[in-house]
Design a binder for these strands. Sequence first.
DNA 1: AGAGTAGCCTGTAAGC
DNA 2: TGCTTACAGGCTACTC
Length: 284
Amino acid sequence: MPELPEVETLRRDLRERVLGRTFVEVWVSPDAPRLVREQSPEEFRKALMGRRIDDIGRRGKYLDFILSDGQHLVVHRRMSGNFLHRRDGAGPDPYLRAVFRLDDGSELRYCDLRKFGSMWLVADPALVLAGLGPEPLDPGFTPAELERRVGHRAAPIKSVLLDQRAIAGLGNLYSDEALFAARIHPQRPARSLSRKEFRRLHGGIVAALEQGLRNRGSSLGSSLRDHVNLDGVPGSNQDRVQVFQRTGEPCYTCGTPIRRMRLGGRSTHYCPRCQPSGAMEARG
DNA sequence: AGAGTAGCCTGTAAGC
DNA sequence: TGCTTACAGGCTACTC
């Protein structure tokens, strides 16, 4: 699923490929009525035509295309959204929901099997992005900042990590990986964590995200459903995860079978030995 | 205010 | 074999 490393990988690839290009035609599938949020498909098309892509940013899991008229095309891929960059005349792609033809003859195609993805064309991106928590890879994101933002909450730490208002960009995979790296049980109430544990958790979050970035993201399902790059190629971080979707397989650190539990409505994976829940062990 | 959960979607896999 | 059910998870909207 696209989390921070997958969206950032896409942002970097898009900058290489489409920066400075101009939209010459835009099509939105009538089969995706919820994709464009702020205007009708026709208004969306007219507003984009002739606009140039001046820069591409990211905030949490949102992409931000900054256009030559000052407008922002903000995109969230949710679960199964992918951009593909195709030359003119390339064959069809399944689950195609929108096409952006560019002035070099290429096409930016948006494919999304589950149709959860969203696009907003807005003058002020804060309309969409306000309320997001800090960027976990920014230098200003420190263990103290993490503790200040979530240290009072009674919910399980795993649920809090998924809350985009607390920290922007973590999803199910990188939350589980960060907690394993920090040796913290996912069910621990956030407010029960010690200062030392917040330091470990901060390090775990940064390490999990940076590993994902180094491996160009994680791609777990088939390429039709999960993250791929502009050429349809998956990332490789799924081969390096420690706990995510490894239920029953031995922990790489201690050999104990990885367990799965349900938390915050999500599957949660952890090592019961490396991530102890008891008060005695938690002090470690 | 904070916590928990149904619903949005579609495809895959497990169970009977 | 073929049907039904559970599951996958980011986010919003809703309830308590």
